[in-house]
């Protein structure tokens, strides 16, 4: 934490967690990144509509506070595993949007050199071990990364992001159990946006809150409002402290909502327009955070505009970078299947 003066600290004493814990610069940077996630996904969506990006994509618009809050207390070399809805996690963990766009455009400058696309976006250098095309696929992998951290005494903690739908896969249950019996430095983050594709949690899941699953594996289960940055960051902060202290895993359920359809082929038949509009109008995580920042005097309208302008430029530059980057050579088709030997 950047050392705020005692006077400033006292004036913040009654504010929510993040406003006491982090400096104004750090918090403005969080707003910047939330916008970056939002505009990145809007940009990717537009490129898809215009036929510049193929395949499909899963947008996390509406879930930005969750990605940012969880990653807030992480150090650069801490690690995450992510999901098919992983653009926000990737940016929150420090990825550059230019190389993400390049990946979506299938270019060699992309994070996966054009081999992975949206569903496999990663940034290994920044600790993001990858999005995943398999629901719950990343959860045991995170436990393995935490096992490495413990055995190799690196001090790293590992976060596994997954959706509410993933909590009904066997991999989720097996992974939580192992993390608990071996007291591994891993944090399970269920981003509960109410639906796994078209299936609501009420129809798919026997418990009301996914955090209740934690009891079966003897770890703390914490529920947070995933659209309030400070709440998410506070829960993550505590879980990270616990993990670093060798006390084992935590399950955080971050309740949130995706504004867009599941993927590019969703007709939203399983939820109402009113429900979607209500979340967009009344619980938009960026609007909520921006309002708090302004109300608490951490930013003014000019500052907000400056962030929006900077983000718009980063997005435009990123798309240009992606367009101008080279496509992979067909002759390189078999690259990366196995490790190259010198």
């Amino acid at each position: 934490m950047a050392g705020a003066s005692k006077a400033v600290m006292d004036s913040r004493a009654n504010l929510p967690f993040v406003y006491r814990q982090y400096s104004p610069e750090q918090l403005r940077e969080v707003l910047h990144k939330m916008y970056l996630i939002r505009r990145f996904e809007e940009g990717a969506e537009e490129c898809y509509m215009r036929g510049l990006i193929h395949g499909t994509m899963h947008l996390s618009i509406g879930q930005e506070a969750s990605a940012m809050g969880i990653c807030m207390p992480l150090a650069e070399d801490d690690q995450i595993t992510s999901t098919h809805r992983g653009h926000g996690h990737c940016i929150a963990k420090g990825a550059e949007v230019s190389r993400m766009f390049a990946e979506f455009f299938g270019k060699t400058t992309g994070y996966c050199k054009g081999r992975g696309g949206s569903m496999h976006i990663a940034d290994v250098a920044k600790g993001n071990l990858g999005a995943n095309g398999i629901v719950a696929g990343g959860i045991p992998i995170a436990v393995g990364a935490a096992l490495s951290a413990k055995r190799m005494k690196t001090g790293k903690v590992v976060v596994s992001f997954f959706g509410d739908g993933a909590n009904n896969e066997g991999a989720f249950h097996e992974a939580l159990n192992m993390a608990a019996i071996w007291k591994l430095p891993v944090i399970f983050v269920c981003e509960n946006n109410g639906y796994g594709m078209s299936t609501s949690t009420a129809r798919s899941t026997a418990v009301k809150n996914i955090a209740e699953r934690a009891a079966a594996y003897s770890m703390p289960g914490v529920i947070v409002n995933g659209n309030i940055f400070s709440e998410v960051a506070e829960a993550s902060f505590k879980a990270v402290e616990r993990a670093r202290a060798g006390e084992g895993p935590t399950l955080i359920e971050s309740k949130t909502y995706r504004h867009r359809g599941h993927s590019k082929s969703d007709r939203n038949r399983y939820r109402t327009k009113e429900e979607i509009e209500d979340w967009m109008a009344n619980r938009d995580p960026i609007a909520l955070f921006e309002t708090e920042l302004r109300d608490f005097g951490f930013i003014d309208d000019q500052g907000i505009q400056a962030i929006r302008d900077a983000v718009a430029k980063e997005i435009a530059d990123g798309i240009e970078f992606a367009k101008a980057s080279p496509a992979p050579d067909i002759a390189a088709l078999a690259d990366y299947v196995y490790t190259e030997h010198a």
């Binding site: 193929h54 054009g114 081999r115 496999h120 992979p328 067909i330 078999a334």
Partner: peptide
């Protein structure tokens, strides 16, 4: 090889 994302590949 696994199936790559890039459409030409």
């Amino acid at each position: 090889t696994p199936i790559p994302y890039n459409p030409d590949l």
